[in-house]
Write a protein that binds this DNA or RNA. Sequence first.
DNA 1: ACAGAGTATGTATGCGCTTACAGACCTTCT
DNA 2: AGAAGGTCTGTAAGCGCATACATACTCTGT
Lengths: 366, 366
Amino acid sequence: MSAPTVYDVAGQAGVSIATVSRVYRAPDSVRARTRERVLEAARELGYVPSGNARGLASRNTRVLGLCFPDYADPDAEDADGDYGDAELMLYSDEIIRGMERAARRHGYALLIAASLAEGPKSLVADVAGRVDGFAVLARTVPTEELEVISRRLPVVMLAGPREDAPLDHLDHVEVANFDGELALTRHLIADHGLQRLAFVGSSEYSPDGEARFRGFQAAHLEAGLPVPARPDVRAALTQGDGRRAVSELLDRGGEMPGAVVFANDQMAVGALSELSRRGVRVPEDLAVAGFDGIPLGRLVTPALTTVRQPMRRLGEEAVELLVARLEDREREPESRVLPVSVIRRSSCGCTPRNGTPPNGASVTQS
Amino acid sequence: MSAPTVYDVAGQAGVSIATVSRVYRAPDSVRARTRERVLEAARELGYVPSGNARGLASRNTRVLGLCFPDYADPDAEDADGDYGDAELMLYSDEIIRGMERAARRHGYALLIAASLAEGPKSLVADVAGRVDGFAVLARTVPTEELEVISRRLPVVMLAGPREDAPLDHLDHVEVANFDGELALTRHLIADHGLQRLAFVGSSEYSPDGEARFRGFQAAHLEAGLPVPARPDVRAALTQGDGRRAVSELLDRGGEMPGAVVFANDQMAVGALSELSRRGVRVPEDLAVAGFDGIPLGRLVTPALTTVRQPMRRLGEEAVELLVARLEDREREPESRVLPVSVIRRSSCGCTPRNGTPPNGASVTQS
DNA sequence: ACAGAGTATGTATGCGCTTACAGACCTTCT
DNA sequence: AGAAGGTCTGTAAGCGCATACATACTCTGT
């Protein structure tokens, strides 16, 4: 009843287990007739090689991993009880797809594991024990744990800035947050003649958010406008907080800005709905822009101007880096920055062409 | 340099390897002081238990798998060169998410592998060798291969009809294709007063497509209308073919139908664009409906009336079935049918409420 | 202080495979 | 025909861990 092994197949085919093994690992090294006999026996017995045993013996798994946070925007969740939030198609789905394709191309399978905030620490270790290398979405895993694990196998960090010591030996892929926000803000200033812009940032510990804010600053610098010292408001990256942030901004009094730039799309979407509730017209009274390029951004009214991140490529690059390091453990740690593109839609005042969605100018990496 | 093992940790902590193993597998069976010493040693050494060794010794992997076709609609691809097609959020992404969550809940990780059409046969075997059980999207894997593998570990079939021998021992989850199309068609007939409906099906070897067509037939039967014997057109499930199919339908001459029901959303979306090109107004001149509930369907103009499949639940159910069978290999093969819901949008003549998307009546399983 | 019961740890084996290495078998050429 | 040189196959030794079983230890009660 128990699963057949090499021994069973070997017995059935009248060869040694080494030959059976070779039939699978190096078919050409076995004479055709012998090979046929083995294959026939395997088929008869329903033999499937054990990945575990193989991995143990050859000390590699041919599996790559991905750890990502189970990031479900709670505000988005209850806004749409059933499965409608599927449309959000978060980050991770795209990254998974990218990684899966690239991994397969290189002969690896992909193991994925989302970590809840409250989950057991062991998750990463669990993954780490089963793969040849893996990617981690920034801030998914405590530094200390990563440090230990990354001593043993290749780890690449996705998004976020390049890590400092003790994780500075990790490979790393991120998108051009700075450049993207710079280009977006430049568009608002130069093409729409906006002068007074507000920025809604997230936690100052969110490196992506900070990088975007610096891009925002740089555009002011470039245009000769006064450079804001800090975001006008900080909030969590959810729709609910976007709503609250824009409220605060409006209630604060003083001169109303011509545009609000949000650190991500979720917030911007929340803000749009709040603005609509208040009767503030977008983009006539106030232009709005986000960052990420989530599909939802195209659905809202007005459609959201934003910066699209190439998440799938992020996954692909991660695999390339892992594979490269697997081949040469000594190579220098590498950090790649992927270009992003500004998507001009209605919320900034642009009128998109009809039909296929407009693509903004591409911004190349620095 | 090589990764530390139980032996290293045991040495460092001054205990036997059995104790080290127990610290991880059954912490309570080790005295607290000893445990601390071991954990400390492990930390120092950067020890991570080898999943392979563990799996080999305990003969289970604590990993579940999913094989799915790398289904990228080629027409959708070139329609939108870069990553815009991400919005399509195919089936598999949702299933993956559902499976991942459910798997994690049960303490399993998820291994995913997409198979290209031209890929090597070995893919499934590859997955099969590394997991305790796995799910397969219908028609991803040749019957013969599945037969062999399913003799060795639990396999659940996703979508498609329940398999006949020799695969009739597999567990199986599908959605209520028949019921969904019946409800949708009933809506067109009863609520919109349409009498002459056309159906664009896919290959007659696509069991889902055929089930949907039977639902379409049943609605005619119910309404006392002549029951169509076969789909008016058959086409591949892509946007391009949807476009071609509707062209053929219109060019065919004769009485123009009041509605066209497509076997899936992709085709319907392609058709909408072709109809718009030809100046046929939807839904005034012709109502259109799809099946699947892809997010894109909400983006197109007019928004597509369709039947939403609970893909995420499909994944969850798959895991439940796998786990159940892992616990009791002898249980009866089970086949679950998930309920679907009709989504009424503009393409059939309904005017959706504003704000949150309308949810059609829910259709319970037969 | 000692038996007895219970608990904590160690010993030894095997999980199913890969992979040197060695040995058997075939060629082919002189 | 015999030897040299290939080619193919077998032998044997782990890979890192879990676990049954044996053993040493701890604690209780008297």
